[in-house]
Each structure stands twice: as C-alpha cells, then as structure tokens.
Amino acid sequence: MTKPFDMDLFLAGVLTGSHATRQRHLRQAKIIQAEITERWQRDTPWAWQRKHLDWFLKNHLEQRGDYTRYYYVLTVRLIARRLGASWVFGL
C-alpha cells in the first residue's frame, strides 16, 4: 500500500507569504490534485502535464469569479515553479 502524496511537503520549498496565503495555496493545490486525479488518474504533480493544469483552469473554474481564477492561477504557477517547468499560465 502506498502513502498518499503530501502536497504540503511538495510545495514547502516555494511557498512564501503569510500563514493565510500559504494555507490558501495548499488548499487550492489539494483541490487541483483531486480534480486531476479524478479526471486522469494521475496522483502526483510529477505525472502532470501542462494540459492537465490548463484543463483545470479552463473547465473547473469557468463558473468562478475573476478573483477566484486569479488566485488559482497563482497556485498553478507555484506548482509549475516547483516542477521546474517553464510553463506560462495567464488569466
């Protein structure tokens, strides 16, 4: 049996800011992980491709407000930075 992926540990090196900001990024990253896992059965960010994060931003957030989308884009950028990818995500 494998241990569940620890998103807190994964993002620990790139999280900055206040406690509330770090908690928001962690909460949103776990939501992103759950949605991608459900859709593509890819449990860890190491298995993700840019298309998975694009899909999340376009489809999962289409009914959300501008501020919500903005904060999720910031979280996605942190994930991409942690992966060492040069992916660019915009609003």
Rank of each mutant, 00 (worst) to 15 (best):
R64V: 04
E62F: 02
L57C: 09
G65R: 07
L9G: 10
H60A: 07
R50H: 03
A12E: 15
W87I: 00
H60L: 02
P45R: 09
Y72C: 08
W46F: 13
R22D: 09
M1G: 13
R69Y: 01
K58N: 03
V76S: 00
D54S: 10
A12H: 13
T68W: 04
G65P: 04
F56R: 02
I31W: 07
D66E: 15
V88Y: 03
R27K: 08
P4H: 05
D43P: 08
Q41M: 08
T37D: 13
R24H: 09
R77Y: 05
K51L: 07
Q41P: 08
N59A: 04
I36W: 07
W48H: 09
W48F: 08
Q41R: 15
L57Q: 06
Y67K: 12
T21S: 11
P45C: 06
L83C: 11
S86I: 00
M1N: 02
Y71N: 12
V88W: 02
G13A: 11
K3M: 06
P4A: 10
T16R: 14
R82N: 11
N59Q: 13
G65I: 05
L91E: 11
G84M: 01
F10Y: 14
D6H: 12
A47D: 15
R22K: 15
H52C: 03
A12G: 08
Q33Y: 05
F5R: 09
P4F: 04
V14M: 07
A29D: 04
T37I: 07
Y67C: 03
T68R: 01
Q41L: 13
Q23P: 02
Y72N: 14
L15R: 13
W40I: 01
E35W: 04
G84K: 07
T37N: 14
H52Q: 09
R39S: 00
W40G: 00
T16C: 01
Y72P: 12
V73G: 01
K58Q: 09
V88H: 11
K3R: 09
Q49M: 05
L61E: 11
V88S: 12
V73S: 02
L26G: 11
R77V: 02
Q28S: 08
G65Q: 03
G65F: 06
T21Q: 13
Q63N: 13
K30G: 03
R39W: 02
R24C: 09
Y70M: 02
L78A: 01
V76G: 04
E35D: 12
Y71H: 15
I36A: 11
I31Q: 15
W40C: 07
